[in-house]
Deep mutational scan, measured.
Amino acid sequence: TETYKYDDKREAEKAAEEFRRRGITVTVEERNGTWVLESK
Rank of each mutant, 00 (worst) to 15 (best):
A12R: 00
E13Y: 11
Y6S: 01
E38R: 07
A12V: 03
Y6C: 05
V36S: 03
K5V: 15
T27K: 08
D8T: 15
L37D: 01
R10L: 12
R20H: 06
E11Q: 09
E30C: 15
G23F: 03
N32Y: 05
A12K: 00
K9D: 02
T3I: 13
T3A: 09
A16F: 04
R21M: 08
E38S: 11
R22Q: 09
W35T: 02
E17C: 10
D7W: 09
K40W: 14
T34H: 15
T34G: 14
G23Y: 02
G33T: 01
R10C: 15
V36E: 05
E18D: 10
W35L: 03
E38F: 12
N32W: 03
T34N: 13
G23R: 02
R22P: 01
G33Q: 02
A16S: 03
E11V: 06
E30A: 07
I24N: 06
V28C: 06
E29N: 08
A15W: 06
A15R: 05
E29I: 15
T3V: 13
T1P: 11
F19I: 05
V28G: 00
R21I: 07
I24T: 03
T1Y: 14
G33H: 03
R10E: 14
Y6D: 00
R31F: 09
R20E: 06
I24Y: 14
W35I: 03
G23P: 00
T25W: 14
T34M: 15
D8E: 07
D8Y: 04
R22N: 07
D7V: 11
R10W: 12
T3C: 15
D7L: 14
G33Y: 02
E2M: 14
A15E: 03
W35P: 02
E13G: 03
R31S: 07
T34R: 13
R21C: 09
R10V: 11
R31G: 03
E17M: 08
F19Q: 04
I24E: 05
L37C: 05
K5R: 13
D8G: 05
E30K: 08
A15V: 09
I24R: 08
E11G: 05
K5F: 15
D8I: 04
V28M: 09
W35F: 08
N32V: 02
I24M: 11
E11F: 03
R20C: 10
E2G: 11
T1A: 09
G33N: 05
V36F: 13
E30H: 10
E2N: 13
E2W: 09
Y6E: 01
I24Q: 07
K5Q: 13
F19E: 02
W35Q: 02
I24C: 14
V26N: 00
A16T: 02
E17K: 07
R21T: 06
D8N: 14
D7T: 15
V36P: 01
T1D: 09
R22M: 11
R20K: 09
K9W: 10
E18R: 09
G33W: 01
V26D: 00
D8S: 15
G33D: 04
K14T: 08
V36T: 06
R31W: 09
L37K: 00
D7P: 10
I24W: 06
E29A: 10
T27V: 11
R31N: 07
D7I: 10
D8A: 05
W35M: 02
E13H: 06
F19T: 02
N32K: 05
T34I: 15
R20D: 03
F19A: 04
T1S: 12
E17Q: 09
L37T: 03
E17R: 07
V28E: 01
K40V: 13
V28N: 00
D8C: 07
V26I: 06
A16L: 06
T3Y: 13
T27A: 07
E18T: 05
E18L: 08
W35H: 03
K9L: 11
S39A: 15
Y4T: 08
R21S: 10
Y6H: 02
E29G: 05
E38K: 08
K14V: 08
K40D: 10
E13F: 10
E11L: 10
E2T: 13
K14L: 11
E18P: 01
I24F: 14
R31M: 09
T25G: 06
R31L: 09
T1H: 12
A12Q: 00
K14H: 08
A15H: 08
E2L: 14
E29L: 12
K14I: 11
I24P: 00
D7S: 12
T34W: 15
E38H: 09
S39E: 12
K40H: 13
V26W: 01
I24S: 04
A15K: 08
D8L: 05
R31V: 12
T27R: 08
T25A: 12
E17A: 09
E30W: 15
R20T: 05
R22K: 11
K9Q: 09
K9G: 03
E17V: 06
L37E: 01
R10N: 12
W35S: 02
V36A: 03
T3S: 10
R10Y: 12
K40Q: 12
E18H: 07
Y4V: 08
R10A: 14
L37A: 02
I24V: 08
R22T: 04
E29Q: 10
V36H: 06
E2D: 10
T1W: 15
T34E: 15
G33M: 02
S39F: 15
K40S: 12
S39Y: 15
V26Q: 00
E13V: 06
A15F: 04
T25I: 14
E38G: 04
E11D: 10
N32D: 14
E38M: 13
S39W: 15
K9A: 07
S39P: 13
K14M: 10
K5I: 15
T25H: 14
R10S: 11
T34F: 15
E17N: 07
R22E: 04
E13A: 05
S39K: 13
K14S: 08
A15C: 11
V36G: 02
Y4I: 11
Y6P: 00
W35N: 02
K9F: 10
R20G: 06
E29V: 15
N32S: 05
V26L: 04
R22V: 06
V36N: 02
V28D: 00
E29K: 10
R21L: 09
D8M: 04
D7F: 13
L37H: 01
L37M: 04
G23E: 01
E2R: 14
N32H: 05
V36I: 12
R22A: 07
E17H: 06
R22S: 05
E11M: 09
W35D: 02
T25P: 11
R21F: 05
T25N: 13
K40F: 13
K9C: 07
T34A: 14
E11K: 09
V36Y: 15
A12F: 01
R20P: 00
A15I: 05
A16E: 03
N32R: 03
E38L: 13
R31Y: 10
S39R: 11
T3G: 10
K5E: 13
E29Y: 14
R21D: 05
D7H: 13
S39I: 15
F19Y: 08
K5D: 05
A15T: 04
A16Y: 05
E18S: 07
R20Q: 07
G33K: 02
T25S: 12
T3P: 09
A16G: 03
A12S: 01
Y6L: 01
D7M: 13
K9T: 02
E13L: 11
R20L: 08
Y6K: 00
Y4L: 11
R22D: 03
R10F: 12
N32P: 00
K14D: 07
V26R: 01
N32Q: 04
E18V: 06
K5H: 14
T3H: 11
E11T: 10
Y4W: 13
K5G: 08
D7Q: 13
A12I: 02
Y4N: 07
T34D: 10
T27F: 11
F19K: 04
T27Y: 10
V26F: 07
G23V: 00
E29P: 00
E18N: 08
E30R: 08
K40R: 09
Y6R: 00
T3R: 12
E38C: 14
R22C: 12
E30Q: 09
E18M: 09
K40E: 11
T27G: 03
A12D: 00
Y4M: 12
K14R: 11
G33C: 04
T1F: 14
S39L: 15
V28I: 14
A15D: 04
T34S: 15
S39N: 07
N32T: 03
E29F: 13
V28L: 12
T3L: 13
V26E: 00
R20Y: 07
K14E: 10
